[in-house]
Design a protein around this nucleic acid. Sequence first.
DNA 1: CACAACTAAATTGCGCACAACTAAAATGGG
DNA 2: CCCATTTTAGTTGTGCGCAATTTAGTTGTG
Lengths: 199, 199
Amino acid sequence: MTAQPGTAPTVPTAQPAPDLSQAPELSQVPDLSQVPDGELLRLDHQICFSLHAASRAFGSVYRVALKDLGLTYPQYLVMLVLWEHGALPVKQIGDHLRLDSGTLSPLLKRLEAAGLVRRERSSEDERSVTVRLTEAGTALREQALCVPRRIVAATGLPLTDIAALQTLLHRVTAALDTADLDTADLDTTEPDTAEPGSA
Amino acid sequence: MTAQPGTAPTVPTAQPAPDLSQAPELSQVPDLSQVPDGELLRLDHQICFSLHAASRAFGSVYRVALKDLGLTYPQYLVMLVLWEHGALPVKQIGDHLRLDSGTLSPLLKRLEAAGLVRRERSSEDERSVTVRLTEAGTALREQALCVPRRIVAATGLPLTDIAALQTLLHRVTAALDTADLDTADLDTTEPDTAEPGSA
DNA sequence: CACAACTAAATTGCGCACAACTAAAATGGG
DNA sequence: CCCATTTTAGTTGTGCGCAATTTAGTTGTG
């Protein structure tokens, strides 16, 4: 992490809202319409922000763990997909990782330059480019096996919590996924698609 | 979202591991030493990946919601900090958001170019640059008040779940935060650079 | 067959994140 | 007082994420 003064306890996200962060099950939730805008804005601050911070915190740890392998975090994700599924066209890699060719093309070029994959145009469909592991790319999997253990250890969380976190992330991603189109047309015309319980 | 074919149900993260993702409380967790490397690698795939995907899914929704305000997601975070705390030096903004000047300097320049903030060197400490809201920047807060509601609506999650998610994210961020230095010296050579609260 | 519509990759441009470095100012110890 | 150290911003370079566009190949329809 860049700013790690050592003396400063950091984790600023943990400070302002100790009220709800320690309650594992707060069952009665107020109507959204009840919550004043200011509160909601604060809550929002917390959530988007926690996610942002957590994502980058993971990035830091992965960066260290992956340095030995010479991979960045997104490159590691691509390699995971290839190790699991074997040779794939760019499009399908993108489907797995939710990335488009604008991101993947240069990334795959770098993996190719590193000698980990080869890219070859499919003879069946000349539009498609098949990405397959080289021997070095396949061999790298062995070194990568130790990475997850280090990451899980670094989180310091029991697998229970990791699983719970993952569940919530799945839910929220799925929801946002179907929602962002709705939001789009909510933005243009209709005011009533909105949320169920509010004014 | 870039790839949103409409017909494809997407959410590929939900497919491969239905085993543990639906269990809200799996209490007995195996020793990490028990879990075979392959399993752990799969789990790891899921967790780093879910977080990555969730973060970007949020990014998409925010992008739409913030388009009216002419702000990007990180710019919005900076504005939130300024709305909450008033004028601050760059350093302190960075502390709140865990960002360094390499990221903030150009970002703040863009906010200044947009007329939302002004940057002026402190007369007390000539190193420091104080960032303060302009009238336009202050006024923008009114428009921003509607954003959180839209985001929460887009998630489709009850506040309970959002709070739970936030709790877990805090925990994991804090853990990773203290951990990544440990990982670093585990990785390099010296055990003595250390830091206060760890092993 | 010709032509429109679609699809897969790649490219361009912009902004963010971060490491590494520089410049300038403050601080503290001899 | 002088100088090493530290602190604060800024700059440079690399890589990711995404929108928008381009290029090339495929498919469907008349």
